[in-house]
Amino acid sequence: MRNLLAAARRRVSEDLAAIRERDPAAGNRLVLLTCYPGLHALWIYRIAHLCWTSDHPVLARLLSQFARLITGVEIHPAAEIGRRVVIDHGIGVVIGSTAEVGDDVLMYHGVTLGNRRPVDGKRHPTVGDDVMLGANATVLGPVEIGRGATVGGAAVVVEPVDPDTTVVGNPARPVGDTHLVDDGEPVRDGNAEIDRIVCDGGRC
C-alpha cells in the first residue's frame, strides 16, 4: 500500500510538471489541482482503468461516466494511456476502448480517438509518444500516429501518420516543405506556422 501511494504521488507530480511545461498560463499548485478538468479526467481514468483491469467493469464504467459528467472528457476505462499526457481545456475529448496513447502526448479540446465501424478487436487509434493533436482533430480506426507527429486542428485522420510528420485537412494529408501564408507568399516550415496549423486547422 505504501509503495502504491508513493507511485501515485510521483505520477501526480509528473502530471503537474507536464502541464506547467506545456501551458504558459498554468498557475500555482492550487490552481493546477482545482482548475484543470483534463487533469481530473486523467486521474479518474487511471482509477477506472485499475478497476477495469482488476475485473470490476461496472465500477470502472461508473467512474468514467462520472468523469464525463464533471469534466466533459470521455475516456473508456479499457483504453491504454501513457505518462505525462496533457489534455488541454478538455471539453469534448473522446477516447475509445481500444485506443492506445503513448507518453508525453498533448491533445486539445474536441479530440476524438474513435472507430470507423463496430467490429471486435482493435478498432481505435494508436498514438505514439510526443504527439500533438490539435483542437477538434478526429482520428478514426486502428491507425497509428507515429512518434513526434502533429495532427492539425479539425483534421480527420483515417490513414497512418509517419513519425515527425504534420498532417492537416479532411482527409488529413502531410504538410509539404513550404506553405502559403495569408498574403500568398510561400514560407518554409517553422514553429509559428505549425502552431497556426495546430490551433486553426490552417491549410497548406
Rank of each mutant, 00 (worst) to 15 (best):
G38Q: 03
E21V: 00
R147S: 05
I44E: 12
W52T: 05
A60M: 03
A41P: 10
V111W: 06
H124P: 02
T53C: 09
H76E: 01
A18W: 00
H124I: 03
G148L: 01
R147Q: 11
G72S: 03
D130W: 10
R116V: 09
G102V: 11
R147F: 02
N136T: 01
V111D: 08
H76I: 00
K122I: 04
A18L: 01
D23M: 12
I145A: 02
V12A: 14
R116L: 15
L32H: 12
R29D: 15
R147M: 02
T98C: 03
A135I: 15
R116N: 14
A25G: 09
G96S: 11
A155N: 07
G27A: 11
A149T: 01
L63M: 15
A137D: 07
G114E: 08
Y45T: 03
T34A: 14
A41I: 10
P77A: 13
I70W: 02
Y36S: 09
G114D: 06
V86I: 03
L16D: 00
G128V: 02
R46C: 11
Y45W: 13
D103V: 12
R116Y: 00
E100Y: 04
G148V: 01
E80A: 13
T53N: 14
N115Q: 13
I87T: 05
L16H: 04
A78K: 00
D23H: 15
D129S: 10
N115H: 12
P118I: 00
A60L: 02
A17L: 08
G72F: 00
L106Q: 08
L32N: 11
V12H: 15
V85F: 14
A60I: 02
I44W: 13
P125I: 07
L39T: 06
H49L: 07
S13L: 10
F66Q: 12
L140D: 11
V31L: 09
R22T: 04
R11P: 00
I145M: 03
P77D: 06
I145L: 09
L50I: 05
L16R: 06
L30I: 11
H124R: 03
A78C: 01
V151F: 05
G134H: 02
L106P: 06
T150V: 14
G92K: 05
R83C: 07
G121V: 03
L140E: 07
L33G: 09
P57M: 06
Y36N: 12
L30F: 12
R116P: 00
A8P: 01
N115Y: 07
G90C: 11
G152C: 11
G121Q: 03
N136L: 04
P37F: 12
D120N: 04
G90K: 10
R10P: 00
R11F: 05
P24F: 06
A137G: 13
A60F: 04
D120Q: 06
K122E: 08
V86G: 02
H89L: 09
C51L: 15
N136D: 13
D103Q: 08
D129H: 15
V85Q: 06
P37H: 10
S97F: 01
I47K: 10
S97Q: 15
R11K: 12
G82H: 04
R9E: 15
T112I: 14
L69R: 15
A137T: 08
R11C: 05
I70R: 09
